[in-house]
Amino acid sequence: MNPAEIPTTSVSELPTEGAVLLDVREADEWAAGHAPGAVHIPLGDLPASTDQLAELPDDRPVYVICRTGGRSARATMWLNSAGLVEAVNVAGGMKSWQTEGRPLECDHDGAEPEVL
């Protein structure tokens, strides 16, 4: 798949409810701040995560997000090529998510969520 053919959307175009979000950032990035309800599978773990990927819905798009959009574009390309899900890259990633004022949560008690 050619990079120009990767299905892409912006954070502002994401549905505010019911969207399936797959976060492919590393564990420390995830722990610092992530979207509520997102599924976390680091990019390097995707090929070995077939059981987790099989749990994602196959009747609607899975929006793939990282920090700014590079890793999620590679993940989207891989997921679509493998035919595992209908993946859509989220341009601008979690940085845009934060800028758009979308909700964030973190895994550190008492800490403010942040995008690393």
Rank of each mutant, 00 (worst) to 15 (best):
M1K: 13
N2T: 13
N2V: 07
P3G: 03
P3D: 11
A4S: 15
E5R: 00
I6W: 05
P7L: 04
P7C: 06
T9E: 00
T9C: 04
S10W: 04
S10T: 02
V11D: 02
S12C: 08
S12I: 00
S12R: 08
S12E: 07
E13W: 02
E13K: 04
T16R: 15
E17V: 09
G18K: 11
V20T: 14
L21F: 06
L22C: 08
L22W: 00
D23V: 05
V24W: 00
V24M: 07
R25K: 08
E26T: 03
A27I: 09
D28G: 06
E29Q: 13
E29S: 12
A31Q: 11
A31Y: 09
A31K: 13
A32Q: 14
A32D: 15
A32V: 09
A32E: 15
G33F: 05
H34P: 14
A35M: 14
A35Q: 04
P36W: 11
P36Y: 10
A38M: 07
A38N: 11
A38V: 03
V39I: 11
P42R: 01
P42G: 02
D45G: 10
L46P: 04
L46K: 03
L46N: 02
P47V: 11
P47L: 12
P47H: 06
D51G: 12
D51R: 15
D51T: 14
Q52W: 05
E55Y: 10
E55H: 13
P57I: 03
P57R: 03
D58T: 15
D58N: 13
D58A: 06
D59E: 06
D59Y: 03
R60K: 10
V62Y: 01
V62L: 06
V62C: 01
V62F: 04
Y63K: 02
V64C: 01
V64D: 00
G69C: 06
A73C: 08
R74M: 14
A75Y: 01
T76R: 05
T76Q: 07
M77G: 12
M77K: 11
W78C: 13
S81Q: 15
S81H: 12
G83M: 04
G83P: 05
L84V: 12
V85P: 05
A87T: 05
V88N: 00
V88F: 00
N89M: 07
G92S: 05
G93R: 06
M94P: 02
K95H: 10
K95G: 09
S96W: 03
Q98R: 15
T99P: 08
E100N: 10
G101H: 11
G101S: 12
P103C: 12
P103V: 08
L104W: 08
E105H: 15
E105M: 10
D107V: 09
H108W: 15
H108S: 11
D109S: 09
D109N: 10
A111E: 15
E112K: 05
E112Q: 12
P113H: 09
E114C: 07
E114D: 15
L116W: 15
L116E: 14
